[in-house]
């Protein structure tokens, strides 16, 4: 593929119907995104420098950077940033680890693999609202199966969604359960691209399962894991529904991530301007991570090119 592209390289730049055609094709989508994502974001940025209230969303007067200034020293906000980072880190680490292990396990043939694979992807497809319902029921203090199981083992019941020390782990369990299949599917696809000869060569060299994985498979997976890691991170930063419906940010605010604070400030405390300021800072966090990713990616690419 690379070869044929190289020899045909001069033929690629072509404009079948004048320079306007691509704009005609892409115009609708671009305009749409500007209207329904770009403008609202700008509006959000604009809101963030006002004291707008929910009852009068178009009122509000400019307060300059007061909202941001207030956030800098705000302990609740700083805690939500830490919570977001902890939530994102654990989700990404957990789903990448479990997803990769599941993919490696399901990659080789064994009886019942088809069924196992089907079951393993299902959590991804289940609507979040349904996921929340079942996890709330599983984690129910009195009649939940989690506590029933613990009692049967002779361990006391836990307040999974009511005890501040278990709030975050419970949310993480539900989240990782829901998002791991995506990682697994993508890694499974990447595993197909590992040439069979490499496995054979490793076997000839007498490599065991573990060393085959670390020396052959993992290097092949790294580019995929990086991009999936990026997606998982920025998705974690904005994930709202599962946390909101499971704990509402509680108990005692331990699962209140940035987006939860945004929603709470906006619709709980009616402070739209203040909420927008939090949201903008959260977006900057995502942008920073994306930027770091692209810097690393370009650097690795350059290194690989030099090596080649």
């Amino acid at each position: 593929m690379a070869v044929s592209q190289a020899t045909r390289a001069p033929r690629r730049p072509r404009r079948p119907r004048g320079p306007l055609a691509p704009y005609a094709f892409a115009g609708a989508a671009a305009l749409y995104l500007v209207l329904f994502a770009g403008v609202p974001i700008l509006k959000g940025v604009q809101l963030s420098v006002t004291d707008t209230q929910l009852i009068n969303p178009n009122g509000g007067s400019s307060v300059g950077l007061d909202n941001y200034a207030a956030l800098v020293g705000d302990e609740v906000f700083l805690r939500s940033v830490v919570t977001t980072i902890v939530y994102a880190f654990c989700t990404v680490a957990g789903s990448l680890l479990l997803g990769t292990v599941s993919a490696v396990v399901l990659n080789r043939a064994f009886p019942g693999r088809f069924l196992a694979r089907a079951v393993a992807v299902m959590p991804w497809a289940v609507p979040t609202v349904a996921v929340v319902m079942v996890f709330r029921w599983i984690f129910n203090n009195d009649n939940g199966v989690a506590n029933a199981g613990l009692s049967a083992l002779g361990i006391g019941a836990r307040g999974w969604l009511t005890d501040p020390s278990y709030g975050m782990p419970s949310v993480l369990v539900a989240t990782v359960w829901k998002v791991t299949p995506f990682v697994m599917l993508v890694v499974l696809a990447a595993l197909q691209a590992v040439p069979e000869e490499l496995y054979e060569a490793a076997r000839v060299d007498g490599a065991g399962m573990y060393s085959t994985f670390t020396t052959i498979v993992l290097p092949h997976l790294m580019p995929t894991l990086r991009i999936v890691g990026l997606l998982m991170t920025i998705w974690s930063f904005r994930r709202f529904e599962i946390i909101w419906l499971l704990t509402g940010g509680g108990p005692a605010g331990v699962t209140s991530t940035i987006v939860i604070s945004v929603y709470e400030q906006a619709f709980g405390n009616s402070r739209l301007g203040f909420a927008a300021a939090i949201g903008v800072l959260g977006l900057l966090l995502s942008l920073a991570v994306t930027l770091v990713y692209f810097v690393i990616e370009t650097r690795t690419e350059r290194k690989n090119r030099v090596a080649a």
Binding site: G44, I234, R238, Y263, A276, G279, L283
Partner: peptide, 10 residues
């Protein structure tokens, strides 16, 4: 990257 929670207000 856009958080729906931020977009929902505007």
């Amino acid at each position: 990257m856009l958080p729906e929670a931020l977009l929902v207000v505007p």
